[in-house]
Design a binder for these strands. Structure first.
Length: 233
DNA sequence: CCATTAATTTAGT
DNA sequence: ACTAAATTAATGG
């Protein structure tokens, strides 16, 4: 947490991490955004939103990675998705309910902007283009997640691991080598398999030359093959 | 402040 | 579930 508030410059007009929705807003409107939002940062592992809390603020993720998850009845958590920079957290909860349905915690050090929820609502109502972009985000989000969970019900462990790897290299990091931002347990939680199965498959893939890894550093060596495995389960 | 060690977390079997 | 390895926290100088 930042404690020296005087150092925070909070003008959205010269923000380098502005998203495609806010980029549409007129400078005068962005000034309003500046007045109704506040930037802070979180350390890796910090919780940003606890499921069940009220949606008093919308959180815009400026930089870093965040996991969106629910904790199950039996203590095992289910990770819905990895959220990367330049997206809003808790949108579906805002429009669907007044309560956050998911928990969010920082996978890396993270910079965020809190935006007052009443103001955000006003923004959406008064700026059609902004609202449109938000709608696109929310829809894309739900489509993605829906597909991923559909796949879970029919894909075998190999397919899911392959898919997750492609998800990281393609969607999140956009490069074929990356550092897994979390433990094997969390990796397993993301794809809904046991930790043991996840490591077993990872090692098998490594043995077959589909990827190389040391610790959390993973490099996709044979994307074509992984895609095939991902498709066919 | 740095170095050692103790405690907790993580990975693989 | 168990062990080894790694990471993090605590301690003492």
């Amino acid at each position: 947490m930042i404690t020296d508030f005087s150092k925070i410059s909070n003008s959205c007009n010269d923000c380098k991490d502005i998203g495609c929705a806010a980029a549409i807003l007129q400078p005068a409107m962005l000034d309003q955004v500046s007045k109704n939002s506040r930037e802070t940062s979180f350390r890796k592992g910090d919780m940003l939103i606890q499921a069940g809390s009220m949606t008093s603020n919308i959180i815009y993720l400026k930089s870093g990675l965040v996991k969106e998850y629910v904790t199950n009845y039996d203590q095992r958590e289910k990770i819905l998705q990895i959220v990367k920079q330049h997206t809003y957290l808790g949108l579906s909860s805002l429009f669907g309910d007044r309560v956050n349905h998911y928990s969010y915690s920082a996978l890396t050090d993270v910079k965020v902007c809190y935006i007052d929820v009443a103001f955000f609502n006003r923004l959406v109502r008064e700026n059609g283009n902004f609202a449109y972009e938000i709608l696109v985000m929310v829809s894309r989000d739900s489509l993605n997640n829906f597909h991923r969970f559909m796949n879970h019900t029919e894909k075998k462990v190999y397919g899911r691991v392959a898919e997750a790897l492609l998800y990281f290299s393609g969607m999140i990091f956009e490069r074929d080598s990356f550092e897994l931002p979390f433990t094997r347990q969390e990796f397993a939680d993301l794809i809904g398999v046991s930790r043991e199965s996840a490591t077993r498959v990872l090692l098998k893939f490594q043995g077959e030359g589909l990827l190389s890894m040391q610790g959390r550093n993973i490099k996709v060596e044979n994307q074509v093959m992984l895609e095939k495995i991902s498709k066919n389960g």
